[in-house]
Design a protein around this nucleic acid. Sequence first.
DNA 1: TTGCTCCTCACGTCACGTGAGGTGGC
DNA 2: TTGCTCCTCACGTCACGTGAGGTGGC
Lengths: 284, 284
Amino acid sequence: MTRHAGLVTVGEFSRLTHLTVKTLHHYDDVGLLDPADVDPVTGYRYYALDQVASAQLIRRLRAVRMPVPQVRAVLGAPDATVREGLIAAHLDQLRRELADTAAAVANLQLLLTGGAVAPSVTTRDIPDLPGVVATGRVGRDLIGAWCAQVYPRLYALAGRLGGVAGPAGALYGDGWFEDARGEVTAFVPLTGAAEPAPAPDGVPRAAVVRGGRYAVALHSGPFDDIDRTYAALGSQVTAGAHGRIGAAGPIREIYLVSPDDTPDPAGIRTEVCWPLLTAPATDP
Amino acid sequence: MTRHAGLVTVGEFSRLTHLTVKTLHHYDDVGLLDPADVDPVTGYRYYALDQVASAQLIRRLRAVRMPVPQVRAVLGAPDATVREGLIAAHLDQLRRELADTAAAVANLQLLLTGGAVAPSVTTRDIPDLPGVVATGRVGRDLIGAWCAQVYPRLYALAGRLGGVAGPAGALYGDGWFEDARGEVTAFVPLTGAAEPAPAPDGVPRAAVVRGGRYAVALHSGPFDDIDRTYAALGSQVTAGAHGRIGAAGPIREIYLVSPDDTPDPAGIRTEVCWPLLTAPATDP
DNA sequence: TTGCTCCTCACGTCACGTGAGGTGGC
DNA sequence: TTGCTCCTCACGTCACGTGAGGTGGC
């Protein structure tokens, strides 16, 4: 018999679910929603009516932009608790994206209304600082999560090693800006020196943070528009207003008032330190 | 001289703007942000410091997901009024997307909490109806805008031709569900018959809307989850509970209470009519 | 002179959409 | 038998990211 009992064709399933035929093909290809039966000779797909429920869930999860692999995980969840956990996690993610978008809109409007004040730039010699540091190769999209993990550990270690001597900071080198990922070194300065020790990536250790001469600008507000401060600072350095230019190591940020220190994003204070080539010692 | 006065390399411009080198290459490729100078022999890109302002605007517009062609239009706007108009239009678009997402979350939660009640299905013979109609090939993403254009015109014409006899409706045929676009016929029934007349796509005209036998279900609430009603209705028809099945023309929706009639989306009432094959007249 | 920076292909990602060209089913 | 539905490639979309392999500049 050619009639498949209780099964419907793609076109029919499309009308039942409001998923297009092309979408159903795609979900078959990626194994998200396999037809109940596929005719081995014609390749015709046949769907069971009880697959409509899965299709409805898929459609709704995709409508809230859950990535296909996560949707697959939801469908394959062993029980309702796991399933609800996955969905709740994604809805949290959505809320974060919504907050990010709202912040980006505010950021845009700040630029358009000219509310942006050009920061003043000064030159500063920063000495070598004993501290606790953690290093990692991090992507720009993960830097927030990375910092949230690393700084508490750094502060904990600093407490055990004699106390915190000043604001935390970080060094961004090696393609951090050019590639949106690179080597990041987070640090917290120590009161008094500790024995420097090696440690693997991401694990806090005692070390000396190299100093040098920097052009420095203070950034007020959230990190979203810290590019304005970088632009003002870097433009001045590039224009030659602060002596010799050129690659002189990583850019340093110093977190005078971090997001953890203030409930108001406008209260955040960050010093951006752009390295300057110091005159060689042999220069007369 | 090899040194380009007042110009910086991609890497430097990347640090100034927080756009990656790959992104800057891409913006060069698509003509969104051309370097001030390109060395004809090495291909090296050189950017002017005053291009930082454009880069900052681009970064912020992209952060609010403005498509690249629109960003280009903003940068090329002849004056501030046009520019602000384009940006405001996009922010409106963002707000609509935000509302859509909120609705999709509600829709998902309705499914998860099982708040969905299966609609009851009845059979109905719908007679041929004199009315005013407009036809067009429309994509699913544009159907809202299309309806917003077409129905006011239909009601206007119906008023001139003798008055409205009942709720408006639409016929969805020809790949509307399978391809997410297809021929849509919007109609408003007329009191008394008018002389049928041809008209091009999208232009209202008098015509008779063909009737037939339908399985009918009432959908309560917004259109986002009308797929539930389609599923319940189509499953019953497919399962053979309503006589012969098969393709019997377009699906019909009747807008008993449309979004224009009620401020509360939950108050919307739509009848979904699934065509049934009527027994041929020659059947004993 | 050595790295470092820069270059250009070519291909990958994500979730499908768009045809082209051809066959099966009622 | 005629359409209508279904099929499978192969390629396109959008905004970049990811190497590979090679060259220029200080």
